[in-house]
């Protein structure tokens, strides 16, 4: 397939996942903020919103303003509305390659969200908008799997989605765990809810909420889709399928990175990770994901012309 097309479906998928992730986290965190305030809650909110794209400016913003900046500020490229617009923009470039149901769903969600965001005033509205995005996301992911040919383009959709998740989850864990000492059960419920993982966690560990168990689950669990390990396994599977579909090329660098990432999680023990430097561990995953993105990009999208002529 054309490199441009692969790049567009990849970014469509990444931006969509980014919007989805941001909505889940804001939704869960906003719910926590409705409880009587603790000093750590505000700090945690700041760290989370910083990692969601507000950076340092979040320090000067009151929570409501920060929320609006992340939800519907079109001048902020990390806002949910901007991410959905970017996903749609990429999809519109490759409308012929994705299914018409996908386009319709994305287009519909875009119009709903921009419309609602433009008129957002009342308190309850962020929550309603989160619900709209959550529903829209389930539907978009559903029609993508159900109506798109599971060929090369779909594999790039998968790769994009799990790349985004593989970067966003460690960032979220880092923001929350950097303030783990002041956290109570509600905070852990909030974190799990950000990943729609509360029920799944309980089935494994019961409702006994322990920080290291929560970390273990969201980092290392291999079967729940909203975990770091699952995301990396899916990236590996997608890249593996792509490599088999295109004629043999020099994929060594890419395979090394993804292999190292997989084994660092497959053979890891949570006690080891936490007792050493959790912050460093999480950030090294993000860095490796980034290297993987670059390697894949250089292999399939922006390869130098000369390399294509080497026998």
């Amino acid at each position: 397939m054309l490199s441009r097309v692969a790049d567009s479906v990849y970014w469509m998928s990444r931006y969509f996942e980014r919007a989805d992730h941001c909505a889940r986290v804001l939704d869960a965190t906003y719910n926590l903020m409705l409880n009587p305030s603790k000093p750590t809650t505000d700090q945690r909110w700041q760290r989370i919103t910083a990692r969601l794209g507000l950076g340092n400016e979040t320090m000067d913003l009151d929570p409501q303003t920060a929320m609006v900046r992340l939800l519907c500020d079109v001048t902020n490229r990390s806002s949910i509305v901007s991410c959905i617009a970017s996903a749609r923009e990429n999809a519109s470039q490759v409308r012929e390659q994705i299914s018409s149901e996908m386009w319709e769903k994305l287009n519909q969600l875009y119009h709903e969200v921009t419309h609602a965001a433009a008129s957002m005033e009342r308190d309850a509205e962020p929550l309603r908008l989160f619900a709209v995005i959550r529903e829209g996301s389930y539907q978009f992911n559903g029609v993508t799997d159900a109506t798109m040919n599971h060929g090369e383009a779909w594999q790039f959709v998968q790769f994009g989605k799990y790349m985004e998740r593989g970067c966003a989850l460690p960032a979220l864990l880092d923001a929350v765990f950097s303030l783990a000492s002041g956290a109570d059960d509600l905070d852990w419920v909030g974190l799990l809810a950000s990943c729609s993982a509360f029920e799944a966690y309980c089935k494994v560990y019961t409702a006994d909420l322990k920080p290291e168990r929560v970390a273990e689950f969201l980092l290392l669990h291999s079967e729940f889709p909203y975990t770091v390990r699952y995301a990396i396994e899916q990236m590996h599977a997608a890249l593996d399928s792509i490599a088999r579909m295109v004629s043999v090329r020099k994929a060594g660098q890419m395979e090394r990175i993804v292999g190292r990432l997989r084994s660092s999680l497959a053979y890891a023990q949570i006690d080891d990770i936490i007792s050493r430097d959790f912050h460093r561990f999480l950030n090294s995953i993000i860095e490796q994901c980034h290297s993987l993105h670059v390697a894949a990009h250089e292999l399939y999208i922006e390869y130098p012309i000369e390399s294509a002529f080497e026998a």
Partner: peptide, 9 residues
């Protein structure tokens, strides 16, 4: 003339 594809030019 070539087109840039994921399998190369």
């Amino acid at each position: 003339v070539y087109m840039r594809t994921t399998s190369g030019l």
